[in-house]
């Protein structure tokens, strides 16, 4: 393996922010809220950069789809060690309805255009929690998929992938080119150092439009409303273990 890796990076509301549903139930409040790179995308970037450091790939390209602000997310990837960025410009109504199907069409088109050998994405974004884009991109390219990866080893022209599944771990071997999606324990992403943040400012970000890639952004999914989850009743306080046990017995939990 010696080719190019494309990494998808999504700009999402920071994982530590407590989200608020808009009063008109049209979505969640995003204005004035801290945004960061999706944590799973950070793991994807780290894995790609590590492959480059091991000289197993020649170039790492970070891709993000969205309005101007996603360039910040691409810059973060560049500061972590990606070589260059591609900003796929999507804004306004198109951005509001942009979902995994549209993004996977964009990623697949870019993979062909850039002659990528490997795509690494996060396994899910922490905003929509969809967990779809990697699988769908692999489908559109007819490439194999190594999803929920917790360990990846290059074995010649194949990848050995240890995957996190419900009952434990599973090992598969897939041909290249391939799509990987990163699970939590694949690696620990590095922090971008100040010198690397400075260097990243000089790296190139190319802008493309979905139409340049021949991708139609029509969505047939429509969010009708977004609600707060039902609130829980306040608890009661008990003083001793005996109290606890008797209360639990009272309500039939034990």
């Amino acid at each position: 393996m010696s080719g190019r890796v494309l990494v998808g990076v999504k700009r999402v509301i920071d994982y530590a922010v407590k989200i608020r549903v808009k009063p008109d139930n049209s979505g969640v409040v995003t204005d004035g809220v801290k945004h960061s790179m999706n944590p799973f995308c950070e793991i994807a970037v780290e894995e790609a950069v590590k492959l480059k450091e091991k000289k197993l790939v020649k170039e790492v390209v970070a891709v993000s789809c969205g309005p101007q602000q996603v360039q910040e997310t691409i810059r973060t990837a560049l500061a972590m060690g990606a070589d260059r960025g591609i900003h796929v410009e999507v804004s306004g109504k198109d951005y509001e309805s942009l979902g995994p199907l549209q993004v996977s069409k964009i990623m697949a088109a870019l993979a062909k255009k850039e002659e990528a050998q490997l795509l690494i994405l996060g396994k899910q974004a922490i905003d929509d929690d969809c967990n779809q884009t990697g699988q769908m991109t692999a489908a559109l390219l007819d490439w194999p998929q190594g999803t929920f990866a917790s360990e990846v080893t290059v074995e010649g022209e194949k990848l050995k992938v240890v995957r996190e599944i419900d009952g434990g771990l599973e090992t598969i071997k897939i041909n290249l080119p391939a799509v990987l999606t990163a699970d939590l324990r694949l690696n620990t992403p590095r922090y971008a150092t100040l010198p690397n943040i400075m260097k990243a400012k000089k790296k190139k970000i190319t802008q493309v439009k979905p139409s340049d890639l021949g991708v139609d952004l029509t969505s047939r999914l429509q969010v009708l409303r977004v609600d707060e989850p039902p609130q829980r009743q306040a608890g009661v306080k008990v003083e001793t273990v005996d109290d606890l046990v008797s209360k639990l017995r009272e309500c039939g939990r034990i």
Binding site: I19, V28, D129, V223, V226, P229
Partner: peptide
């Protein structure tokens, strides 16, 4: 029309699918 959770269950999204 389906309901699913988003943002780690901190909001519920009702989605209409015209596929």
């Amino acid at each position: 029309t389906f309901v699913r959770t988003i943002y780690a269950g901190n909001a519920l999204s009702t989605v209409k699918c015209d596929e």
